[in-house]
């Protein structure tokens, strides 16, 4: 059984400008087609293995993000896509922006870019699959 053959992905937009979000969606559509790696975009955190965050964390979505993460089954991997999810980007100075996704969640993979390019996002997803596999193996070894 290999999780890595069919990771399901949950996307949440923190406070992104939409640029990274549409690129994430573009990844799933015919030209870039992340589905060839078995990735399926799901809206249900209970089904998801990967949590893909775009945009920075603010005071209102902090709880939402924590909640989504808590609902996902183990093992799980978090990707921060785009500079806003990494550090806050150009909006870091805004009063309502707390910073990158790692302010509230353990981030496994950072994807650079403003906006992140689909190639970079796919690369990030593929790396995340490796992390997922490691986490699964670690959990098995503990048993």
């Amino acid at each position: 059984m290999s999780l890595k053959k069919s990771p399901w992905l949950l996307h949440y937009d923190g406070s992104s400008c939409n640029g990274c979000d549409i690129e994430v969606l573009a990844c799933l559509t015919p030209l870039y087609d992340a589905e060839r790696f078995g990735v399926i975009n799901t809206g249900n955190p209970r089904h998801a293995d990967l949590l893909l965050l775009t945009g920075s964390i603010n005071h209102q979505n902090e709880e939402v993000v924590r909640n989504l993460y808590a609902q996902m089954p183990e093992p799980k991997v978090v990707l921060a896509v785009g500079i806003c999810a990494t550090s806050g980007g150009v909006f870091a100075d805004c009063y309502n922006v707390k910073g990158g996704a790692d302010k509230v969640l353990p981030v496994d993979v950072y994807v650079p870019g403003c906006a992140a390019r689909p190639e970079a996002i796919i690369d990030g997803i593929v790396r995340a699959l490796g992390v997922l596999e490691q986490k699964r193996a670690a959990a098995e070894a503990k048993k």
Partner: peptide
Amino acid sequence: IGFIHRGLELLAPK
């Protein structure tokens, strides 16, 4: 609303 509110209008004076 307010999940994506950044307050970027306030960056203009800065």
